[in-house]
């Protein structure tokens, strides 16, 4: 399908480091990802995978002093935001990208009523709107009772707080919503409600979503495409039905078994051996190689290029087990016009 508009979000081979007292941490080691207008994309990873760093980089939220984008670029709706200054971010933030977090309390102001916080968000981004009416609309949109406009964050349940934070985010009328583990702190039934609300909002507003999670089940129920990230590198990506139908990277395969609490022939729970990687070390090859049951000599030497697995280029993997595709790497990594 030809794309007339540029993708709402595009990361090309982004390398990002943090300077810490213990040395340099390589949080993103060449991460590429694309989100098209209106599309729901999952970014799946464990702790230390770089998934939240990636999300914060898109909004310029990583600390300016200690973090640095060493290479690559980030485009929002075609605009290069890789080198924006903090002041430029202040002006740009919210539109067309907004973000919600796992813990709404760390973002909502504890001593300001919910309605006021939504109003401030509107005033910042569209000051000419009739603010009061718009606050009412947003509260209705996220299915909160209108009386809660006068409530303080601590008076709300976890699910209601997430709805309130969504209302603040949507006040910017974003074309892309980044949701970083939005339901991790919630009970399953509340989680199901929030996921249903997100689906509903996307349909109504035609908004794209990048859903960041460690939970493959959530991606299965909420996303059209997904990326699997490990140690700051995307190892596999594609349409959800393709990746779920035939996961290719040994890490993705292991993750699926672990998430389902599958057992092997000996009745043992499926597991991925070893520990998540130390990002202080320079990984030349595939970062998963030390834990990989199928690791070969090449794996430690270099990171493989992408291999396209599905017809129509809807599924790809970076793993030496698969023959590389002979196109330019960036072309392959930008695929996903599914």
């Amino acid at each position: 399908m030809p794309q007339t508009k540029p993708p709402i979000l595009q990361l090309d081979d982004v390398r990002l480091t943090f300077r810490t007292r213990a040395g340099t941490v390589r949080a993103l080691n060449g991460a590429s990802l694309t989100v098209h207008e209106g599309e729901a994309v999952g970014l799946v990873g464990e702790s230390g995978s770089g998934k939240s760093t990636l999300a914060r980089a898109v909004l310029g939220l990583n600390p300016e002093r200690s973090s640095r984008i060493e290479a690559g670029r980030i485009l929002i709706a075609g605009r290069d935001v890789t080198r924006l200054s903090q002041a430029e971010w202040e002006a740009a933030r919210g539109h067309p990208v907004a973000m919600v977090f796992q813990d709404p309390l760390s973002f909502l102001n504890p001593i300001m009523r919910i309605g006021r916080q939504i109003a401030e968000s509107i005033e910042r981004h569209a000051p000419d709107r009739r603010v009061e009416q718009r606050v009412g609309e947003l509260i209705e949109l996220v299915k909160l009772p209108s009386s809660l406009a006068r409530a303080y964050p601590h008076e709300l349940s976890g699910g209601m707080r997430q709805r309130a934070l969504l209302a603040v985010a949507l006040a910017c009328e974003p074309r892309l919503l980044i949701a970083d583990e939005p339901t991790t702190a919630l009970d399953v039934t509340t989680q199901a409600e929030i996921l249903a609300l997100l689906r509903d909002l996307r349909e109504k507003l035609g908004m794209a979503m990048l859903l960041i999670t460690h939970d493959l089940g959530i991606v299965a129920s909420a996303c059209e495409r997904l990326y699997v990230i490990y140690a700051g590198r995307v190892l596999e990506w594609g349409r959800a039905q393709d990746v779920f139908g035939a996961p290719a990277h040994p890490y993705t395969v292991g993750l699926f078994h672990a998430a389902r609490a599958d057992r092997d022939a000996q009745g043992r729970f499926a597991t991925i051996g070893g520990e998540p990687p130390d990002l202080g070390e320079t990984a030349q090859g595939c970062p998963f190689a030390p834990r990989c049951p199928k690791a070969m000599a090449e794996c430690a030497r270099a990171m493989p290029h992408a291999s396209v697995l599905a017809d129509g280029e809807t599924h790809a993997v970076r793993c030496w087990l698969y023959p590389p595709t002979r196109e330019s790497e960036t072309a392959v990594e930008r695929l996903g016009e599914a």
Binding site: L255, A258, A259, A261, T271, E275, P276
Partner: peptide, 14 residues
Amino acid sequence: ADVSIRGQILNLLS
């Protein structure tokens, strides 16, 4: 615990 090490803990408990 991360998803990938859940199995290790479950096996240990078993």
